[in-house]
Structures are given as C-alpha cells and as structure tokens.
Amino acid sequence: MTDVLVVAELIDGGLRRTTLTAVTLAKQIASGTGGAFDILSIGVGAKNAAGNLAKYGARKVFVAEIAGGYFAEKYAPTVAEVAKKGSYGVVTGCASTYGKDLLPRVAAKLGATNVSDISAAKVEGGKVLYKRPMYAGNVFGWTSPNTASAVVGVRQSEFESAPEAGGASATEEVAIATDPAAARVEFVGLESQKSARPELTEAATVVSGGRALKSAEGFKTVLEPLVDAMGAAMGASRAAVDAGYVPGDLQVGQTGKVVAPKLYVAVGISGAIQHLAGMKGSKVIVAINKDKEAPIAQVADYFLVADLFKAVPEMAEKVKALKAQG
C-alpha cells in the first residue's frame, strides 16, 4: 500500500494544469497498491486553488498559503513536513521548471530517492517501477528506488491530465515550516510575456521556427501568421532563442520544453538530437525545410521541401481559407 502526496503548482494565484498530470500518476499508484492520494496546495492563492483541487478525488487537500514569490527554500520545508506526517511512500509533482527545482530539494530533506522526469510507471508486486527518458530520449531506463520513499517528477507530455472526479475532497490548513537557507534568498521578480496563444505544453498544434527565420521580424511577419491560422502554440529551436529572435520559454528540446501535440510543424529547423528530444513524441510531424537531407526527416511524417519564406505565407493563407470553410 503506497500513499501518494501531490505537490500542486500554482500560477497567478490559481491552479496550473501541470498539476493534473501528477494527479494522474498519484491515482495510478494509489489504485495499483491499494493506497490513497492527497494534494498539497501551496503558495500564493493556495486557499483559492484548494477549491478547484478538491474536485479530483483526493482523500484530502492540504492548504499552505505562503505569500511572496516562489523559491525552493521557502516551500521545501512545508512540503517535507506534510510528507513526513502522512508517511507517504511517494511525493510527486510535474517536472516543470518548478517541479525540477523544488522536488529534488524535498527528496534530500526526506532522505528519499529523487526520480526525475518520468514518462511512465508500473506497479509490480506492490513495488513501483518508473520509466525515464535518458540520453535525450534515446534510451529509456526503468528504475526502482532503494529507499522507503521516493519523490517523483512527472513529464507533462507523457501523462494525461486527470479529469474531475465529482464530489469534493476535505481541505485542511497546515502549518508553514521554515528553513534557515530561506533567509539567504530574496525573490526579486518574475518577468513573463503574456501571450494570447495556447500554452506550448498544452496545445494540440505547435508550430516552431528555427534559425532559418533569420530575425525576430521573421518570426513576427512570416511564422506568426501561420501559427495563428492554425490556432497553434509557437515554439522555437535553441538557435532561434540564442539569437534573440524569441524568448527562452519558447524553446522546445532536451533542455527546453517537451511537447507531444497532435501536430508539430518544424519550420527551418534542422532536427538536432537535442531538438528531437523535445518533440518526437508528437503524433504527426511536418517539416518545412529547403534541405531534403536535414535530420528532421528521421522523425517527420511529411516533409515539404521548399523555401520557407515562400511556402509559409502561402500555407498561412490556405489554412485560413480551409478553416473558414470548416
């Protein structure tokens, strides 16, 4: 029997959907081992988000309202205290940058094994085994912790969001624990660019641009009309981000975001191993590239051999027309 604690991720005082992929893992482990799962709503807006989190069938939703911006030293002590009190065998959260920052620190506090960025789990004879992409997704390792408890990060693109379960979990406020290390960190600010487009990790269609777009202007005038015609989220290669064409939070890849949409369109992207690591789980992959030999062909289903500066504007117009027809 393994009880599971889900650490929620909040954004702008509300629930971030990343949390629901961790709920899916929690349900799988709890039902596979005959245990229960609880959720910890923590941070700014924890009380507010608890109402929402209560809809997913957890035995309990714990609430830790903490003011001010996030840093791990501020949250980890409370997560660890709640985890210890409930003797959870597994503590889990989404392997977003938030989860990747916080969860290993929690694991170290608990003396638990940290299992990063898993793509699947299975319960065998009461034991949980986790599948992890390694070597930029070129190998999967199955791992099992040697310790009594584990802290597990869930790769968002590989787990469904848990659906609402009906009913409402009981909520309970918990004490905020502190840590001397927190006194040596000051939150200065978070700078984010709001976009009306769907979130990269949640969109059904992603259109990404590479170095070949040549400038920020290229992204704006050439790529964006196609992105919007397709109702897609916009992504980018590292080369495009490094060159300053678009912000870093659009990077897809081994070290950027991992996406698995129904349709992924790579425009002027060669398909380096590190880029493929972030998108090869997509259902249908389209490449638009003037070089037939580009490695993206190894994963693409369709490859339009063309100059993007001609093909992309034409495609944007034609997709718009198709969508207008319905």
Binding site: I11, G69, Y70, F71, S96, T97, Y98, D101, V185, E186, F187, V188, G189, L190, E191, S192, Q193, T201, P247, G248, D249, K257
Partner: peptide, 10 residues
Amino acid sequence: EVDTGVLTLK
C-alpha cells in the same frame, strides 16, 4: 530561465 519567463533571485 523558467517555464513562464525569467525569475530573478538574489
């Protein structure tokens, strides 16, 4: 460099 932008700490 975080998912939602750039978070600055001291």
